[in-house]
Design a protein around this nucleic acid. Sequence first.
DNA 1: TTAAAATCGGTACTAAAGTATGAATAGCGT
DNA 2: ACGCTATTCATACTTTAGTACCGATTTTAA
Lengths: 159, 159
Amino acid sequence: MTHLKDIFIKTRHITVYGLIMAIFVFALKWFQWKFLVLDNATEIYAGLIAICFTLLGIWVATQLAKPKIEKVLVEKEVYVTLPAGIEINEAELKKLNLSGREHDVLQLLTKGQSNTEIAGNLFLSLSTVKTHVSNLFVKMDVKSRAQAIEKAKRLKITP
Amino acid sequence: MTHLKDIFIKTRHITVYGLIMAIFVFALKWFQWKFLVLDNATEIYAGLIAICFTLLGIWVATQLAKPKIEKVLVEKEVYVTLPAGIEINEAELKKLNLSGREHDVLQLLTKGQSNTEIAGNLFLSLSTVKTHVSNLFVKMDVKSRAQAIEKAKRLKITP
DNA sequence: TTAAAATCGGTACTAAAGTATGAATAGCGT
DNA sequence: ACGCTATTCATACTTTAGTACCGATTTTAA
C-alpha cells in the first residue's frame, strides 16, 4: 500500500503539471477565439507564456527539491564546578542574634535536611527541632524553611 | 563592500534571466523571419516557449533555492573550569533536562515561594504546581523542596 | 502519521511542616 | 536568691508538602 502511495506522491507533481498545462492551453485557445489575437501581438503572447511557465517551473522545482543532509560537528562544553571561595557574612549573621543551638539547626536546615534528619544529627527530639526551627523563623523573619534557606544563601550566612 | 556584493549576488540571477530571455526573443524573431512561421503553428510555438521557460524556471529556482540543511549534532565534551562568577551554570542546568514549565516553577521555588504562591504567580492550579514540583524532584534527584533549593543554589542553576 | 513528550488539571491519601502552648532543667549575671 | 535566657521535650492541632494515581489536550519528534 505504501509503495503505491509513494508512486502517487512521486508522480503527483507531474500529473498536476500536465493538468495545469492543459488548462492553460485551453485558456489560451479561448482567449484566441474571444479576442482574435493579432499577429503583431505574438511577442505579448509569448511573454505571457514565458512568465507563466517560468513561475510554474519555479514552483515545480521547489516541490521537487530534495533536502541536502549535512552533518555538523558541534563541541559541547561541560563545566566543572569547583568549590569556590566560601566567605560567610558574619555581620549579617550577628544581626540575627541566634542562639548556639539555633545556629546548629540552621546549618543543617540550609543543607536541605528535614526536621527528623536534624533531630538525628543533633541527638534531639523532633519536638525540640520544631521549636528551634520556629524560633529561627521568627528571628530570620521568614515563614517557611524554604524562605529560610533562600535568605541564608542570599545573605551568605551559611556555606 | 560586502553589502554591494550581496546585492550583486541577489540580483545576478535576475540579470542572467533577463539576458537569456532577450537572447531567446531574438532567436524567436530570427526563426520567425527565417521560416515564416505559419499562423496555425501557434500551438507548437507556444509549446516550445512553455517548455523552454519551464526549464528556465526550474534552473532559476535551483539556483535561488536555499539548501535545506539537516544538522546532525555530534557532542564532544570539553571540560572547562567555571570562571567563578555569579553567572548561572547553564551546563548543569541543561543536564537536568527540565521542561519549560518546570524551569519556571524552579525559579519561583528557589525564591522560597510555596506551592500556592507559585500557582498564583504562574496562573496554575495547585494540582499542576504539585505535579511540576514532583517531576522536578525526580529530575533533580532530591526528595524535598529544601534539598531542591540547596542544590539549585549550590550548582548555581538559579540566581 | 504515529509515538512520545509536555501541559494542565483532578482526587485521594500519607508525611512532613509549622503553630501554639505548656513545662522542666540548667546556667548566668546582678 | 532572683530574673532571665537557653535548652529540652511534650501534646494537640492546622496547614502545607509530597506521592501516586488518573485523564485530557497539545506540542513536538521520529
